[in-house]
């Protein structure tokens, strides 16, 4: 295909930077919440550099902070990150990568870069540009945000006095909100919350959230032929 004039990619780059800045603000709250949950600033930064998928990162520190233990925290993060693999599956043919670019692109495969890339389909050239521009912009600004948030929270005192323990569920709610698009989503959300609350007094911390994954499996089985 013929390469597009440079000008047609500029709006994509601008949006990519805008999304990066918005995500940097998420990063700021992630950094603060992670430190308030008991991780060090370096552990917090390592998550943003290596894990680099927001919901999994919030979940890992949330479960650890609530005393759920490492195994439940890791499993929760993995289950939440499974969707990234399907994003990769979807965009791999468009990106058509060889060699070292493949493992690099994998790390940048998240909600934002995938959504931006898909929005440019079927124009392959723009779709690739959107993926890389958004992925790199979000990676850099998410990590800068994390650093500032972690250092800021390290400098201040008791998380409960500052209401940071209320910021944690609010953060999860803000991640959940855009996914509540239809009646089925609301039903699944209600089911997940109910299972978790019923199990909280009965099981050790960390198990209730893992158990809520069953709702997704059952609903996923019943809705498998939709969409």
């Amino acid at each position: 295909m013929t390469p597009l004039p440079r000008g047609s990619k500029r709006p994509i780059t601008t949006s990519a930077i805008g999304i990066g800045l918005a995500t940097g603000a998420y990063g700021l709250s992630f950094g603060a919440i992670s430190v308030a949950s008991g991780l060090t600033a370096i552990q917090t930064q390592t998550l943003s550099l290596l894990m680099f998928t927001g919901a999994s990162q919030f979940a890992l520190v949330g479960v650890l902070g609530a005393g759920g233990g490492a195994i439940a925290a890791v499993l929760t993060a993995w289950l939440l990150g499974a969707r990234n693999g399907l994003y990769a599956l979807h965009i791999a043919p468009t990106l058509n990568l060889r060699g070292l670019r493949k493992p690099v692109a994998a790390q940048l495969t998240i909600d934002e870069s995938t959504a931006m890339s898909i929005a440019q389909e079927p124009n392959v050239d723009r779709s690739r540009h959107a993926f890389w521009a958004t992925g790199i912009s979000v990676y850099v600004l998410w990590n800068i945000g994390t650093l500032l948030g972690a250092l800021g929270a390290s400098a201040i005192g008791d998380p409960a006095t500052l209401g940071l323990d209320a910021a944690i569920p609010a953060g999860f709610l803000a991640l959940l909100w855009p996914r509540l698009r239809d009646r089925a989503a609301w039903a699944i959300a209600a089911g997940g919350a109910t299972i978790a609350l019923v199990l909280t007094p009965l099981t050790r911390s960390g198990v209730p959230v893992l158990a809520s994954a069953l709702i997704a499996v059952i609903a996923g089985y019943r809705l498998r032929d939709r969409s």
Binding site: A55, A59, T76, L79, L80, A82, R83, F172, L173, L175, L176, R179, L180, A185, I188, A189, A190, G191, G192, A193, A196, V209, S212, A213, I215, A216, A219, G220, L223
Partner: peptide
């Protein structure tokens, strides 16, 4: 659907 159930 996993993020919906688990985030909730």
């Amino acid at each position: 659907l996993l993020p919906i159930a688990m985030l909730s």
